[in-house]
Amino acid sequence: MQEFLEFTLGGIATGMIYAAIALSLVLIWRGTRILNYSQGGMAMFTTYVAWLVIQHTGSYWAGFAVALAAGLVLGSVLEFAVVRPTENKAPLNAVIVTIGLLILLEGLAGIIYGGQYRSFPAAFSIKGLKAGSVGLGISPNDVFTAAAVLGAAVILALVFRYTSVGLRLRATAFAPAVARLLGVRIGRVLTLGWALAGLFGALAGVLVTSSTFLYPNSMDSIFVLGFTAAVIGGLDSPVGAVVGGIVLGVVLSYAGGYLGSNLVLVYGLAALVLVLMIRPTGLFSSGVTRRV
């Protein structure tokens, strides 16, 4: 029973990381129907920026803030300079461009920072929390991780729902042609979508890297799992992305805990294949959940 509790809470904490990556993919997919394969690379790159800032200033929070800002900037610059020119071309062009971006970002990180594994600090203690004498399987840092992603997701949902910027984002996602005719400057909205995606990617990178290591490929497997979470959620539903992330995190935590932790990535890929076979549109892609 205690194991079960530990695996569940630990799974939710890890799942929030997948949720953040999934959200970043959904933000771009909704607006542009582009699957951003460079999302993991972007997250890795902004985490290096955070690492550099922490090295120089000694402040974790300075690094944290700069990484988020770098995510915003990187997302908008990439959309404007690299992705925009593929607009109105064959969809495969955009796919190849984002894969190319991934290779470019990982190569650049290798050139600038070297290929060695670096440890990245955590915001809070990573010692396990206890309720009385019962271990919960999560640390204060895990709680922070989950709260940070959840908080960012809630802010995003409020912005989507109650602001005119959010209305522009949603209208552009659902009906770009209509939005244009109503005077919405689609180009700016798409840039904003990429900027927000960069922000969520940066958040995921900074949060997850404290429990892995930082190296040019460090986000590859996280990206695959985040993508799986997004597919579970239906790729165009932000709520689905968060739920998909949590579901995947918990399932993988049980699988790792009860079946052995060496094969977690394999289980993740198996989950992806399973979802694509049984329900390729995801669990949340019905009209009802597209409301949010």
């Binding site: 005119s164 009906a175 209509v178 939005a179 109503l182 005077g183 919405v184 009209g287």
Partner: peptide, 25 residues
């Protein structure tokens, strides 16, 4: 203002949101 043929409402948005969308400019 161009109202294209074939029902250009954004079905996923509420009626009020559709109207607000028109007034954003």
């Amino acid at each position: 203002a161009h109202v294209p043929e074939g029902q250009g409402v954004v079905t996923e948005l509420t009626i009020e949101e559709n109207l607000r969308l028109g007034g954003l400019i």
